[in-house]
Computed example of a mutant assay.
Amino acid sequence: MVEIETKSGPIDLVKHRLMSGGWSIHDVVETIRQGLIGGGKGEVNGQPVEVTALRANSLVENYIDGHAIAEHHLTARAIIAALYVGYAPMQEAKKKSPGEAEPEAIDWGVVLHNCRTLGLSLSDAEAITMPEYAALLHHHNLANEEGEESPPSADDVSAMFLRMERAGIGKIH
């Protein structure tokens, strides 16, 4: 977090810019670099790789620097959201009972995109209840014409929250 703040300013402002717009190259690149270092692992061409600070620099140079930065914005948003609300795939695995089916992974980038599509800020998204979120999605889907990109259905969201609840992650009201 200190490295991000050194290059991009206070972390809360970086979060605000990534979520609301007006982000800079440093916001995106440093968030991804520090996310790789903090996570200690990444993926290159579908293969998992161990990530050190040196490897993170190499990955950023090869896959982000000199490429269209907007395509990496959602990755940076997902990383900063995980910093604020957590990301606990290891806790999911520990809580799973023997013989229990593994819950589907939740794509936080999609969740954040849906919240943004609905006009929700990160703090609004954290505070909303499951029924409120499902109702917003339902009415958004009803209001949009066929063929336009829209968030998942209320049933999809309910199923996602059920998976989250079973996995012991997320803020379920």
Rank of each mutant, 00 (worst) to 15 (best):
H139W: 11
H16N: 05
V85F: 12
L54W: 10
A82C: 10
V60P: 14
Y87L: 12
Q91P: 04
S24E: 13
S58A: 04
H138E: 11
T31R: 07
P89I: 05
E43F: 14
L120V: 01
T75S: 05
L162M: 06
H139F: 08
W108C: 02
N45D: 14
I37P: 12
M130Q: 01
D12M: 08
A76Y: 02
H72S: 08
I172R: 09
E102Y: 05
S58P: 00
T52L: 08
S150A: 02
L137T: 04
M130P: 02
A82F: 11
Y133V: 01
P98C: 02
G38P: 13
R116N: 09
V51Q: 04
W108R: 09
A70T: 00
E132P: 01
M130C: 02
E92R: 14
L36P: 06
D155V: 08
Y63L: 15
T117D: 06
D107Q: 09
E126Q: 08
P10G: 04
Q91I: 08
A127Y: 02
M90A: 15
G66P: 12
I64F: 11
A82H: 11
H72T: 00
R55N: 02
A81H: 15
M164V: 08
P89V: 06
H72Y: 07
D12I: 07
I106T: 07
I64Q: 07
I25T: 11
A134T: 01
V44H: 15
G9W: 15
D27N: 06
P151F: 05
S123R: 07
A76S: 02
V14M: 05
V2G: 09
T129E: 00
